[in-house]
Design a protein around this nucleic acid. Sequence first.
DNA 1: CCGTAATACATCGAAGGCGATGTACAGTCT
DNA 2: AGACTGTACATCGCCTTCGATGTATTACGG
Lengths: 173, 173
Amino acid sequence: MLELAILGFLYDHSLHGYELRKRITALTGHVRPVAESTLYPAIKRLERAGLLARETQPGAVAAPRHVLSLTHAGRSELRHRLTEPARTDITDENRWFTVLAFLRHLDDPRAQAAVLRRRLDFLEEPASFFYDGDRPLRAEELDDPFRQGVLTIARATSRAELTWLRKTLAALD
Amino acid sequence: MLELAILGFLYDHSLHGYELRKRITALTGHVRPVAESTLYPAIKRLERAGLLARETQPGAVAAPRHVLSLTHAGRSELRHRLTEPARTDITDENRWFTVLAFLRHLDDPRAQAAVLRRRLDFLEEPASFFYDGDRPLRAEELDDPFRQGVLTIARATSRAELTWLRKTLAALD
DNA sequence: CCGTAATACATCGAAGGCGATGTACAGTCT
DNA sequence: AGACTGTACATCGCCTTCGATGTATTACGG
């Protein structure tokens, strides 16, 4: 997910690590902050994999900046990761939001629609959090107000997202 | 989060690992499946830490079952983790839902309310996903339909949860 | 003049999660 | 008879993440 965010932000502009970190923090940081000791090794990995290149610039303010840009392989890697997200990229909201944040980088509307449809299928699967054996329990059946809350919130999210997904899928056709 | 779920489920009943896994899968598995190779080492950790005990039973169907139960230290550890959740337990929805699923195990309504209030404070912080410099962008200002979706969905979730939080906090007083 | 914050990068070791793989038995399907 | 699925547990090694720590410079407030 971190790698996806790095590739996604660099797809538009070359950025140095520190700036990249600020953007990633704005995107997902209020939920899960990104430590520097996670970001810099991730950049190195992507660099070693040939997905991004760095160019050292004299430091404008402090230490020299390493301006990062995607290589051709990096650009196609991003498109690939967006076209065929892993299962958890679809199901985990944090990861899904990251996919959505960069999905515009796919230029084929049908590929974009296919990704949205995978999320739609997932949300339409009958799934609950609490079960009586195999039977999913509805909020009304729970005597626990906190578990009721989980179902209430999840249901509201799901409904809002389904509405948005159907509207956006219709617009993509 | 996994450890919290283990402690939470065992607080009510003793369970063997395989059954525990099914319950955890029901709770969070549709979003993030739990691998067996994650669960069993986690059980071992908690056991080594003196938080749970195992009792071997002859296998009803297959291999012998290890029935797990919380020790006294395990029970107070759960209450402690629920009373003072880490920052990401509050901000990350996956973790937050796990906290909510077991919050009833605190018997002091004021302690429960304090946890809900931390989530309330977090949701009331002005936070966005996309910024123009320091200024958070509203959904209407984005020309990207997918990023609009992120904001739309996040806002709907937030509103539903705020309503529920305020209602539940009022009931707890 | 000194402390602190911000800019900008980097490494190390510990811990956690995961896929792959293994063991063993019982029931079911072909 | 053999394959496969479900029950039930376990280990190994890889990878990612993270807190702690370090280095160096500029800017600002007291």
